[in-house]
Structures are given as structure tokens and as C-alpha cells.
């Protein structure tokens, strides 16, 4: 583990100016459960120079239930979100997602903003000692061309919706699908932006989000769902704890009787960014949510998926998961 500098910021302004000073070579540290791992493993060819601790900034933690909107401070621990009564009742998908992030210990440390901004888990990218200097890491030496080692390697956990600039890594966040389905917005030091819009365009694969290196997430805002809507989340993984998703999915469905009035679905761990299956959403709206309908929506959700040699199962899984989540929404009432 290489050396880095570490600063405790006492205000957002101080944090922002520290980040700006390092011109992209400094990172925010909140819960630290992701970034400390990447530092320990020395995954990057050129490590971060500095970490800016924002836990020393007052006021960034806590859940406030305002008029028609839930405000979750950036540093709110996932465990607190999972156990918050309001979240559990009105924003069930988020409570369920927060509840299954990693382990209880990690959830006691890890924050909502950290979970949103976390790095990929691609096992080539994250392999210790930068064993795989891949396209995602950039910084090619002169004459060196970078590749994605997953493309002809062990890609069982990789993208089913193709590469982005050759990179096949996926976004592993548990909470993002729930936040997107719930229509959440991020308030940062620079702007207010919908969670679904924080992901880079497809020509910038080395970034998880478009949040600038000197930009800090302050708060997550979620509009209160319709009283007639229900939400659910599920993650498929090998173990029932610890694991990142092979595929995960959240949905929020607003019902009028049996009929779907409005519906938002979001899959994750299937593409470099969360995947909103618009076709599936469209076909559900205005129809009763039968088991068959849910299965059809599952089929539609993976429309256009192109498997890699080792991961066609993820397509089947995503299909099945969408169906399962939709039925869970229906039954949640």
C-alpha cells in the first residue's frame, strides 16, 4: 500500500478546495470501505495522491422527512437507512437494498453517497498489485495498447449489454437501482442531478460517474412515492451476505387496482451503468400485472442483451429477476 496524504476537511468549501488543489489526484473518503480496499490492493498504476475526509464536516449525516420528499444526508450510514422506519414503509426498495449491502459492519461504516459512487468490482481491474493494467485504468505506456482482460478471460460476472470503449466492467451498487426506480436526485456542491443521469456517456469508461473530482455529494433526495405504489428490490449473489450482486434489480410500481399505472424498473451489475429496461416498463403500463405479464416484462428487459462467452446465464437471471421483483411489488400490498 503506497503512501498518500490525508486531510480532514472541516467544511465543504475546504474539502472542495483541497480536491481542486490535487487536480483529480485526490479522492473523497467517506465510509472508506471501498477506497481503502483499492488502496490496499494497489489496483491503480498511479495511486491517488491524497484523500479528503469529509466525515469531519458537520451536517452531512441523517434522514429528514420533509414535505413530499425524503432527504438523506450523503454520510448517512447504510445500516441507518435500512432500519429507518419511514424508509422501510414508504421506500421499501431502498431499505431492502441498503439492508443487503456487503455486511452489517460495512453498512455501519459505509455511506449512501459512497454506495452510489463506488468503484467497479471487476476482478481484473481490482486484482491486487495492478496485475492487469487494463483499458479502464488508462495511462498506457508509449507503444502499449490497453485491453479488457475480461473480453477473452473469465467474464462470468461482466456486462451483458456490451462493452463501453472495450471495457466490460459493471456497476456493482446495491442502492443505485432502488434510487433510480424511486426517482432520486443528488444534491452536490455543484448541482442537483437525477441519480439516473450521473453516469458517464459511453465514451468515458474509466469513470463510474460524471461527478467531478472536486465535486462532493451532499444529499440524496427522494420524492415520496404515490400511496398506491409499491416497491421491491432483490440481489442475486452466491452468498446471502458479503457478496456483490451478480444481477440486482429494483422496481417501483404504481397500481390502480390490478392495473399498472406507472412503473420504474432498474437493473444493475449488467452494464457499465445501471440499466433501465424501458421496453419492459412500457409494456407493463396500463395492463394488469399478471404472472405472465411479469414474465413478458422480464423478456423485454433483456432485449438487446449480448452475452459474453461465460455469462449468458446472467441474461436468464436478469429476466427471472425482473419477473420476480414485479411479482414482489404486486404482492407487497
Amino acid at each position: 500500500m503506497r503512501r498518500f496524504k490525508h486531510f480532514d476537511a472541516s467544511s465543504l468549501d475546504e474539502a472542495v478546495s483541497l480536491l481542486a488543489r490535487f487536480e483529480g489526484r485526490a479522492k473523497v473518503i467517506a465510509g472508506g470501505t471501498d477506497i481503502v480496499g483499492t488502496l490496499k490492493d494497489s489496483v491503480l498504476p498511479e495511486p491517488y495522491e491524497a484523500l479528503v475526509n469529509i466525515k469531519t464536516i458537520p451536517g452531512l449525516e441523517g434522514i429528514r422527512n420533509g414535505a413530499g420528499v425524503l432527504k438523506i444526508g450523503a454520510l448517512t450510514r447504510l445500516e441507518d437507512i435500512a432500519h429507518n422506519e419511514t424508509v422501510q414503509t414508504k421506500y421499501a426498495a431502498l431499505a431492502q437494498a441498503a439492508r443487503v449491502v456487503a455486511t452489517p459492519h460495512i453498512r455501519e461504516m459505509g455511506t449512501i453517497a459512497g454506495n452510489i459512487c463506488q468503484n467497479t468490482r471487476c476482478w481484473y481491474y481490482r486484482c491486487a498489485h495492478n496485475r492487469f493494467h487494463c483499458v479502464r485504468k488508462g495511462h498506457a505506456a508509449p507503444g502499449q495498447s490497453l485491453e479488457c482482460f475480461a473480453s477473452d478471460g473469465d467474464n462470468r460476472y461482466h456486462s451483458i449489454f456490451g462493452d463501453v470503449k472495450d471495457c466490460l466492467a459493471v456497476n456493482p451498487s446495491d442502492t443505485i437501482p432502488a434510487l433510480i426506480a424511486l426517482g432520486a436526485t443528488l444534491k452536490t456542491t455543484k448541482r442537483s442531478i437525477a441519480v439516473k443521469d450521473i453516469f458517464p456517456p459511453s465514451d468515458e469508461p474509466t469513470k463510474m460517474t460524471i461527478i467531478d473530482s472536486d465535486e462532493i455529494v451532499i444529499e440524496v433526495e427522494i420524492p415520496e412515492p404515490q400511496a398506491s405504489s409499491r416497491s421491491a428490490y432483490h440481489k442475486v449473489a452466491i452468498r446471502k451476505s458479503i457478496d456483490f450482486p451478480i444481477v440486482n434489480c429494483a422496481a417501483v410500481v404504481d397500481f390502480e387496482g390490478d392495473v399498472v399505472k406507472d412503473c420504474h424498473i432498474c437493473l444493475n451489475a449488467v452494464h457499465y451503468k445501471p440499466y433501465v429496461p424501458e421496453r419492459a416498463e412500457a409494456l407493463l403500463e396500463g395492463e394488469p400485472l399478471t404472472d405472465e405479464q411479469a414474465a413478458t416484462a422480464g423478456e423485454a428487459a433483456v432485449w438487446g442483451a449480448k452475452p459474453l462467452p461465460m455469462n449468458s446465464y446472467k441474461i436468464t437471471m436478469a429476466k427471472g429477476l425482473v419477473k420476480k421483483i414485479l411479482i414482489a411489488c404486486r404482492e407487497a400490498g
Binding site: 490525508h6 480532514d8 473518503i29 472508506g32 470501505t33 481503502v36 480496499g37 484523500l51 475526509n53 466525515k55 450510514r77 445500516e79 455486511t103 452489517p104 459492519h105 460495512i106 455501519e108 461504516m109
Partner: peptide
């Protein structure tokens, strides 16, 4: 490596000592 910090069980290997 769990310790209790301010009432929360946390993993000390992922926490920087300076923090």
C-alpha cells in the same frame, strides 16, 4: 477485526487510524 466504535460494530481493517 471488529471493534465497537461509538456503539457501532465496525471493521477496523477498513478504517484509517487517522480518522
Amino acid at each position: 477485526c471488529t471493534v465497537i466504535m461509538d456503539g457501532r460494530p465496525v471493521v477496523s481493517c477498513m478504517m484509517l487510524a487517522v480518522e
